[in-house]
Computed example of a mutant assay.
Amino acid sequence: MSNERPLDAPCDCDDASQTSPSRAPADVTRRRFLQSAAAAAALSATPHLHAQNAPSATAPTQAPPPAPAQPVRLDINGREYALHIEPRVTLLDALRDYAGLTGTKKGCDRGQCGACTVLVEGRRINSCLTLAVMHEGQRITTVEGLAGVASLSPVQRAFIEHDAFQCGFCTPGQLCSATACLSEFSAGTASAATPDVRTRPAQLSDAEIRERMSGNICRCGAYVNIVAAVRDVHTASA
């Protein structure tokens, strides 16, 4: 028998030990591409990391030093208070922290709730939105100054009779605002609820009271009783 293998017979050699020259370049190219892409990504991120970790070239901005305190004389509830405060102190903080009159409450500290309402020359303002030094020489009235020496004011009595307060936090501002509300109506001042703002309002209706007291928020919701108290004081004085 002949030991010669036909020319078209399959080869029985071990292909696993041989590397295909046609596949090797493709594998190497793909691997090198991925390595190059990873290296490029790392290099592109390096400047950003350096920029984040680098110390700031400029020194941090320091807050300006506080303004020196200065003497301020305030006429509060008929008494003169000699205070030594910074020009940036609000009237609310001056009343509470320097004059010791804590009846005026700090609610929102943004002029939205009305808890800090006081009277300055009879006009109601939010004391958290004004500086104390601006009111030197003016007559300031807080809730402590509404009552007389031996009796409550008519507004204070009406609030008690009509249970126009719940937790009481907004009550000082409500009382000051109601006092000014009645004075404004007596002076003929119109409001957004007045049918014709060019003329004196005909009567202090509930709509007028609600509009004039709208700057004072009661989180307990005692608005019905507040309106009733203000109406009762107006009716009694008419």
Rank of each mutant, 00 (worst) to 15 (best):
T58C: 03
C108G: 08
P172V: 01
V224M: 08
Q166K: 11
C11H: 07
R157L: 13
A51N: 07
E4A: 15
N216G: 00
S2R: 13
P68K: 10
E121T: 10
A150M: 05
A229M: 07
R110G: 07
F169Y: 15
P6R: 14
E184M: 02
A192K: 00
A16V: 12
A229E: 02
I85C: 03
R30E: 08
A24Q: 13
C220P: 02
A202H: 07
R110D: 10
S183T: 13
S183C: 03
A202M: 05
L7E: 13
E80F: 08
P47T: 05
G111Y: 09
D206P: 01
R139A: 15
A187V: 04
S127R: 04
S151I: 04
A40C: 15
F185A: 02
P6D: 13
P47Q: 04
Q203T: 09
G107W: 00
S127T: 05
A69V: 04
G145E: 12
P172Y: 00
Q166Y: 12
C11I: 13
N126L: 02
S36N: 14
A40L: 15
P65Y: 06
A236P: 04
H48G: 14
P68W: 07
A222G: 02
P71I: 11
F169C: 03
M1P: 13
A192E: 03
G103P: 11
D27L: 11
F169E: 01
